[in-house]
């Protein structure tokens, strides 16, 4: 089973996770820019974070045979902090980089005017840079948040078929599917979706334009949830082609809209036994 996790925050994960992910079949990931649990206080923190997503993290992933890509954005939560807002001016120089495959995560957290502005601005940036967008739907008041999100996208220069609407569930899947957007589902141990409900939704709505991710981060989450969904799909009677479509071909098709996917893992040519990570020379 080849797996592309289209949403996972590897910065917060260990090399044990990379090893287990590779063993489970994960060969490619996209790491969306998001908040770090601890609020940032300046654009400089974002710069270091973006640089890590374009430097150290792809190197770590390559050690474990996993192709790493990222999406770049000011996240909705921190769009409300005036100390962070100036990072919007820094985004264009990041959005031209190789391996940046979308603008994201953008969207709503508390649905504030500041979030409206950041979302609209960044949808325009996506259109300007030939990139699709990864749009997070809010945890609270989700259906209202989805509707407002879709309205803003419709008013933007970015067509809905270049937008992945993420963290969907039973209450939001239908409207999201009708909009023509790509459909993302985050499978979590407690919140968001679980494997059983995910497979039920796949049966009801089909695998077309569906992407399943672990969204694993610094909170309680499981980087192997993609594999667990694949296993349950097979157990519940889906064919291998359906699994491959959801877990590999759909994410490749969506992020491939950027023209910047590079799924051939470039290893660190000078490393034996991965020991620069296990115990660096310094």
């Amino acid at each position: 089973m080849r797996i592309f996790d289209p949403h996972i925050h590897m910065t917060s994960r260990t090399t044990d996770d990379y090893e287990a992910m590779h063993a489970a079949g994960v060969r490619a990931v996209v790491e969306p820019s998001f908040w770090l649990g601890q609020p940032r206080t300046s654009p400089d923190s974002f710069r270091d974070y973006f640089d890590a997503l374009l430097g150290w993290e792809p190197f770590r992933a390559a050690q474990y045979g996993i192709a790493h890509h990222c999406t770049i954005a000011l996240n909705p939560k921190e769009a409300n902090d005036p100390r962070c807002l100036p990072v919007l001016d820094e985004l264009p120089r990041y959005l031209v980089k190789d391996r940046v495959v979308a603008v994201g995560e953008i969207g709503y957290d508390s649905m504030t005017p500041a979030e409206d502005t950041a979302l609209a601005t960044q949808l325009q940036l996506a259109a300007d840079h030939g990139l699709p967008a990864l749009v997070h739907t809010p945890h609270r008041d989700k259906l209202t948040g989805l509707r407002r999100t879709l309205d803003v996208v419709r008013e933007s220069a970015l067509p809905l078929d270049r937008v992945l609407v993420d963290h969907l569930n039973e209450t939001t899947v239908e409207e999201a599917k009708d909009s023509g957007a790509w459909l993302g589902f985050s499978v979590y141990p407690d919140t968001k979706m679980d494997e059983v409900r995910m497979v039920a939704l796949l049966r009801e709505y089909g695998p077309e334009r569906v992407l399943v991710n672990s969204a694993a981060d610094w909170g309680r989450s499981d980087p192997l949830k993609t594999r667990k969904v694949g296993d349950l799909m097979l157990a519940e009677g889906f064919g291998e082609d359906d699994v491959d479509r959801v877990l590999w071909r759909n994410p490749v098709a969506f992020y491939g809209l950027s023209g910047r996917l590079e799924l051939d893992v470039t290893s660190a040519d000078a490393t034996h036994e991965g020991n620069s990570i296990l115990r660096g020379g310094a």
Binding site: R27, V252, G256, G259, L263, D264, T266, D269
Partner: peptide
């Protein structure tokens, strides 16, 4: 994008 197959390891830009 240049390739859709995963897992192939190539050296980076040197002989």
């Amino acid at each position: 994008m240049t390739q859709h197959d995963a897992g192939h390891v190539t050296p980076a830009g040197h002989d």
